[in-house]
């Protein structure tokens, strides 16, 4: 039972981006995908949630093929994405944004509410509860976006560049929150990141995406130590 992407090919009309990508996320696992710009990282998560159509290959969720399901149906089955740039509803309040996440949980909302734990650890979200989302700073918005996704009780969580545009300090916070989410929800997390070093430090396993293909995969710590990765993605001389 996992989230499995098998030989996925997808992209845009005149520009095929993914050319046969296979990725697997097990429950409770934090898997990082690192790679250069244009390697297809965002395309990969958009394809997994169904915002981009597969040309061939498949996406299976807990053994069931969801390749032909619409995005909202995949979300209802517990596949949540936090898109690049946060994408909060700007003119809804923080509370309303999170309420929309809760709404998506539907029948999956059983047991302890993981949102409470997050709010306790990061009280800033609670402090901003009644404010319009657009008035929040980038870091705060990312916190709310993550909380919103968690409110939907995801079984798998896809995070697209959560640190994009954040200051070093806020990036630290976001990575701490991701750790906490993994701890509290038991969801499998697929983390797509430009900040390869931090992503690899946080992850259990990792994939390196190059030109729409997986060029390396394996234990995150090992990849982080490997010369190839250090040279290409960590900027080490």
């Amino acid at each position: 039972m996992s989230l499995v992407v098998e030989k996925a090919e997808s992209g845009y009309d005149r520009n095929p981006i993914l050319t046969g990508v296979s990725v697997r996320v097990d429950p409770g696992e934090l898997v990082a995908v690192v790679g250069s710009n244009g390697a297809g990282k965002t395309t990969l998560v958009r394809t997994i949630v169904g915002q981009l159509a597969l040309r061939s290959g498949s996406v299976t969720l807990e053994g069931a093929d969801v390749s032909s399901l619409a995005t909202h149906k995949r979300a209802k089955q517990g596949l949540m994405m936090v898109p690049e740039g946060r994408k909060l509803f700007p003119r809804l309040t923080v509370g309303e944004n999170i309420a929309l996440g809760r709404r998506a949980a539907g029948k999956r909302a059983t047991g302890e509410d993981p949102v409470e734990a997050l709010l306790e650890a990061f009280p800033v979200v609670k402090e901003r509860w009644g404010q319009q989302a657009s008035l929040l700073s980038g870091g705060e918005q990312q916190m709310v976006a993550l909380t919103r996704a968690v409110a939907a009780r995801p079984s798998y969580l896809l995070l697209d560049e959560p640190s994009l545009g954040l200051s070093p300090l806020k990036t630290l916070d976001v990575f701490r929150l991701i750790e906490l989410i993994r701890e509290r929800t038991g969801a499998g997390v697929l983390l797509v990141e430009q900040m390869a070093d931090q992503a690899l430090a946080a992850a259990d396993r990792a994939y390196v995406l190059e030109h729409g293909r997986i060029s390396m995969e394996g234990d995150a710590a090992e990849l982080r130590a490997s010369d190839e990765v250090r040279r290409a993605y960590l900027g080490a001389a």
């Binding site: 909202h72 994408k87 509803f89 996440g101 919103r148």
Partner: peptide
């Protein structure tokens, strides 16, 4: 109402609404 919340969400960002399990 909850339907109203969904309507307001769709009006602001249909793509993200679909990530929230709602079909725009």
């Amino acid at each position: 109402t909850s339907i109203g919340l969904v309507m307001r969400a769709v009006s602001q960002d249909p793509d993200t609404t679909s990530l929230m399990g709602v079909s725009p």
